[in-house]
Design a binder for these strands. Sequence first.
RNA 1: GUGAGCGUAGCUCAGUUGGUUAGAGUCCCGGAUUGUGAUUCCGGUUGUCGUGGGUUCGAGUCCCAUCGCUCACCCCA
Length: 434
Amino acid sequence: MSKAIQAVRGMNDLLPEVVERWQRIEAGARDVLHAYGYREIRLPILEKSELFARSIGSQTDIVEKEMYSFEDRHGENLTLRPEGTAGCVRAGIENGFLHNQIQRLWYAGPMFRHERPQKGRYRQFHQIGVEAFGIESADLDAELIFMCVRLWRALGFDGLTLQLNSLGTLECRAAYRRELVHYLETQRGKLDEDSLRRLDRNPLRILDSKNPAMQEIIAAAPDLFEHLDDASRAHFERLGDYLRQAGVAFTVNPRLVRGLDYYTRTVFEWTTDRLGAQSAVGAGGRYDGLVEQLGGRPTPAAGFAIGLERLAELLALQGGSHQGVRPHGYLVLLGEEAERQGLSLAERLRDAGLRIECNGGGGGLKTQLKRADRSGARHALLLGEDEVRNASITIKDLRDGAQRSIAQNELIDFLLGSNLKNKEDKATADERRR
RNA sequence: GUGAGCGUAGCUCAGUUGGUUAGAGUCCCGGAUUGUGAUUCCGGUUGUCGUGGGUUCGAGUCCCAUCGCUCACCCCA
């Protein structure tokens, strides 16, 4: 056992039970995305390292210490993507689909960051990313947030809170940053270790410090909001209007800064108090400068990403262990002749659109019924010597134990009818719930 | 990168101040019923006590090292 190879740290196997939960989220997300006219795009997991340095920012934690980078056989420096936006923008420029047009896109897949794993944070994690290009006005920002709200509702989440901030344009943020650094330099003696480290790297993050000793200094720091240019301020107020009009509650958090350099104006973050220290389930913002920064024409853009591991954990927390897809019938085969006929009978049933699990590996009736029970199938379909002799099949309802024998040529109709009835039962039950 | 906690059966865990042959539940298998599951009863298999070293007459238990996992910090989805 000690020689067994383990998975790479921070990279988890998703077992079927968990995957079924993910699929609920993915299906819900797809419906919402389509409801807003977003189209799926599929992008490489591997990109040239320079792409991330140029977009996320070479001074950020992600680029400085969290990337999975390596040289390939030709000495090219490649990186497993730590986030999706950079690759999406790169693809847009490369394929020319950002040129003077509006694009609404989404993608889903794994991201990689070499951090120390903890609850809700893994080295391979999964996001659904949403990006929209070519719309400068705040109605897009609102649309993105509405999509989130709709998804939370579809999944039955409540208690998520929305935090909102504006960072202004790249220019006014840079100006603010200079002023903030200037102020913090005068307070240098009072800064804690973390803040000193951030001072020249990412001074805005100091505003987000949780150290109580820092609060006084932070409170007296220059206010980012007062440095917003008029257009950015108007943009932010407009977004607030849209949200209030739609009844979407939010909190303005002037300290919400985000760890990626490309954000401009709107940034937002959805958080929960149920997942331990890693509380953000989704976050995003506007990045009007990024397309140009990566070599495209100036193009306004905004997007967000949601963390699938965290959503799945939330879903698990609120219970409701939804069973996945179950077979309609489990085919029990007793005796040589039954085994001979069984496989092709199962095929005929599947041709009719039924999900059939066929007993494999022999075994007595007892064993096979046990397997039938565990398969989750509603009915066990018994084919034994008697049934083979008179072309019949015995159907056992595994829920109430009732049993009946019918002709084999009536089996499909029986199962389809019973399956249809189940669906109706479920529909009326759903209706009653509402 | 830093800190803390934990590694005993496939899984969840108990194991007293160091003391004989390391336990329970669950899971799995068989039987009660040679063609009736889930429930019940009876029986059975589960092991490098993470790994390596040390202390001791004796180590799952104490010490050291090492690996792994978990949570938290930093940061983020």
